[in-house]
Design a protein around this nucleic acid. Structure first.
Lengths: 334, 334
DNA sequence: TTGTAGGCGTTATCAG
DNA sequence: CTGATAACGCCTACAA
């Protein structure tokens, strides 16, 4: 593999000149430039951007830490991050925490060792040590799917509380009073916690007593949704509506309910959260909260670059959500 | 940021020793080792693996090129790649081609400049120049979702032809004779082409004339599936069964058919390809060909490491597929 | 506009 | 078991 040294020798110039035709061609005389270009071709020169990163202390690489790429909502925001990174000529290294905090720690460390220029994190615990340390060391990072509206961290997210509130309000407006919730474990997802909070507050605001038996905390997956709904339906006084804290859970819940012989949405209303693409393709089409995942990823990346270039005071951006009413929710039976 | 040099000075040893306690601690006396460890702590030393990569010419990073992370089947294989890479202490840089060949080219170049140790590629064109060049330069890479069973490339894939054949055979066994196909564009997906080939051959083997009007080539997406099925249903002599070359297309087709007032599967049988997780959660549950995406990703990564360590003769592995019969296919109406 | 030369942090070779 | 030192490929003052 030839280096700028070989090229320089062949072209009869110095390595500095070669470096210049690569990085700021306008600074070198046309004739010289062509001579160099020709030489590069001849020795089949390949640029080594790792060496560059080493010299400049800038790797043109960022790290993206998410719970799991299998959830379409994270796939979508990942695409947003990548697309913006692309315009900034930087690559993204992806890591899944699978909702495990120590995995998050490992990833942060590994990626920092790799000298990524910055980190975009969907954290499992916004109050943990990982982020605190990062901030203390003034390391550039931004939170995605953040629940934090203020404070020392750069972040972009949505108002999960309001989302949960909206869904619940929708149920109530359809006459439901027994409203259950299948939520991602609060210990690994404060997003889920905030959604629950909105759900709970809405109940109270409408004079409906909060019943903790109607809440199930579980892993985010189709199977868990499927199982949890059955538990809820086995209660002495089962819910007539269920709010699932993401669409995968909701899709699973729909299957579980049907396996119990229920007709949807007649016998049971179900709503999700995220509005992944498939949500409008299933039967009945899923009522859910749309969150702008792609835009969030893109904006997160934008903020990260802004933060890296000009570490001013932290910016938090909260994107809008929207209740999308489709066919999986209906008036309370009877 | 402190370096091994600082640590060495503080510990009163040479940089070589510090390097040794990092990379082969057993080679240094316990006492010295502890002295160094202590020094590292004191100066809050952070290892720079980029510098290491520069020195060793090994970045411990691999590149993964896929069409789009939004298709769950690619998300799943990506996870397989990542999980195996993880056990080899290497990170993966992800890039989407969005099925564009020139984007594939760009990604290969960029990632090579970044000095990734190897590449895992789901290519848009297995006979194009990109792979040829890579192979000529003896660059380590392996193909994923490969259609190639033999030849100079390392690869792992499935038998798409047989998959297409199986689905079609299933339709025929249910009495269908008018069988349509909604396929990903052959120009960007030879996988789709092979599936079509199996479909076509199966028709012929059963004495059913091939009708090119029953084939639609399109982009892989829910919307395209939805639209394409309508075109097919508008034919003078419409199909009673439709084979979609992936599950997203099939899920879209189900919606499109329903919008035309058809009852599924009574009025129209639909089958997909991939067996993404959601396939068994929709109504009617989707009949499809299961391809082991996670295993494929994992095996692909394994092969890449094998190739990097011992560039022997190329290995191609074809994984098994399975027809999963669910509820979206039924006997021909009437 | 171009050349010289030192530096980036770690590894690896060779002595001791 | 440890130390000295030359790479590794590119960038960037500074000088010419």
């Amino acid at each position: 593999m030839s280096t700028i040294f070989d090229v320089a020798k062949l072209a009869g110039v110095s390595t500095a000149t070669v470096s210049r035709v690569i990085n700021s061609p306008e600074m070198v005389r046309t004739q010289t430039r062509e001579k160099v270009t020709r030489a590069m071709k001849i020795c089949n020169y390949k640029y080594n951007s790792l060496a560059r990163g080493f010299a400049t202390k800038q790797s043109n690489t960022i790290g993206l830490i998410i719970p799991t790429i299998n959830n379409p909502v994270f796939a979508e925001s990942t695409r947003g991050v990548q697309d913006y990174a692309d315009v900034r000529k930087t690559q993204v290294i992806l890591g899944n925490t699978y909702y495990q905090y120590d995995q998050e720690k490992t990833l942060v460390d590994t990626l920092r060792e790799k000298q990524v220029d910055g980190l975009i994190i969907t954290t499992t615990n916004p109050r943990g040590n990982i982020l605190k340390t990062l901030a203390d060391e003034n390391y550039p990072f931004v939170l995605l799917y953040s629940t934090i509206k203020t404070g020392p961290f750069w972040a972009v997210g949505i108002d999960n509380y309001r989302g949960g509130y909206k869904v619940t309000d929708h149920f109530i407006s359809l006459g439901h009073r027994r409203i259950g919730m299948v939520a991602g474990n609060f210990s690994i997802s404060d997003r889920s916690f905030h959604r629950w909070h909105g759900y709970r507050q809405c109940l109270l605001d409408h004079g409906i007593a909060y019943d903790k038996n109607l809440l199930i905390q579980t892993d985010y997956s189709l199977t868990e949704g499927q199982g949890s709904v059955k538990t809820l339906l086995s209660l002495a006084d089962p819910p007539t509506a269920i709010f699932c804290s993401n669409d995968y859970l909701a899709l699973g819940a729909m299957k579980g309910a049907r396996e119990r012989g229920l007709k949807l949405p007649k016998d049971l209303s179900i709503a999700g959260f995220d509005d992944i693409e498939i949500a409008s393709y299933v039967i009945p089409a899923l009522t859910t909260i749309r969150q702008p995942a792609y835009e969030m990823g893109k904006l997160g990346a934008e903020l990260l670059f802004q933060r890296m270039e000009n570490p001013a005071r932290p910016i938090q951006r909260m994107l809008g959500t929207e209740l999308i009413v489709r066919d999986s929710t209906a008036r309370v039976p009877g």
